[in-house]
Write a protein that binds this DNA or RNA. Structure first.
Lengths: 184, 184
DNA sequence: ACGGTGAGAGAACGGTCGTTCTCTCGTGGG
DNA sequence: CCCACGAGAGAACGACCGTTCTCTCACCGT
């Protein structure tokens, strides 16, 4: 038998794939079971409910997002370049097969009204990203307001790319962000 | 008995309220029936399926969005002011009770992967708004690229306002848009 | 070698969904 | 006055959901 930690990871990764591709409510727990290859009994020993599993999936996505943003920023020198590197990260992501927008925005739209725990998880994720950007903006010696402006471009790029299937919006968002940084 | 046209309007308006507040899949057809006060049999005579009803709801929202944008622009003089008026429209909307983000983005995240018709309706709505903005941008004598930049701010403002419950992002998005118009 | 522990597979359960059907009853024409 | 029509209310239906339970069997210490 797999130990609890790796079983958890397997289930969360499988659920993430399915939830992201089809939406949460369109995926039954039987499908998660099949995708993960972990018995339903075990899944319910690891997660009290489907809602718990969704929260765990969002926690995974939060870590992946933070890692991706950090890795993209690694090659950049100035704070300004580290801010703009976020859009290079988006660019690569938008081009991935099966890109379907921001999992947090999608989950919020689907379940935010009925599940406070999921709504909170989404809010915390977005707040932590805004805080990260705020730190970079301050490092760059720019006014705080710029951070929110960049956040708006990042969010807008994600939803627009998802709906239009046009990965080029990442480049356009980057140019807009650069213009806003220059203007500030 | 209500004639077909008004019965249709009643059902679509009721479904819109419920779907927007709770998400589509969280609302059963019985709830639509209660909210509208129209018998289930009648609803299924007017709409072939729940999916048809969702498409009709999105069509209503498309018209309301176009009307709202046009009304906000009515008081503005220059093309530039008509572009920025979109954000005043957003500001008022974000402050409404029960604001829960863009119904199109929410529906797309929830059902876009499983219902091509809904995905198409969302895409068409977003494209028509981008085209509208593109026309204004050209009237203002600005490069086409600015239209997409403004679209990104509009989309970003909607999702961010929904998640953070902070209506002030409309003002911040307006300032960012003004800066981008100036820079172009 | 063997009995017990616990894991896996999937059936079962109660509930809800979208959709259709049945039954009742008010109404309008002859 | 009566009958046929159609509309309304809600039961019924089959499918599927999240969650739990049952049964089987492989594996372990002694």
């Amino acid at each position: 038998m797999l130990d609890d930690a790796t079983a958890r990871e397997t289930v969360v990764a499988a659920a993430d794939r399915l939830f992201y591709a089809r939406g949460v409510q369109s995926v039954g727990m039987d499908a998660v079971r099949s995708e993960a290859g972990v018995p339903l009994k075990r899944i319910y020993a690891l997660f009290r409910s489907k809602e718990d599993l969704v929260v765990a999936v969002l926690a995974l996505r939060t870590k992946q997002w933070a890692d991706g943003v950090e890795r993209a920023a690694a090659g950049a020198g100035s704070p300004r370049e580290r801010i703009l590197a976020v859009f290079d990260f988006l660019d690569a992501w938008f081009r991935e097969d099966g890109f379907r927008g921001c999992a947090f925005i999608n989950s919020f739209g689907e379940l935010g009204a009925t599940s406070p725990r999921i709504a909170d998880a989404v809010r915390e994720h977005k707040e932590s990203f805004r805080d990260h950007l705020l730190a970079l903006v301050r490092e760059a010696g720019l006014p705080d307001a710029v951070a929110v402006q960049v956040v708006l471009l990042v969010e807008g790029a994600q939803t627009t790319a998802a709906i239009t299937h046009d990965a080029d919006v990442a480049r356009q968002a980057r140019q807009a962000a650069a213009a806003l940084l220059d203007a500030a």
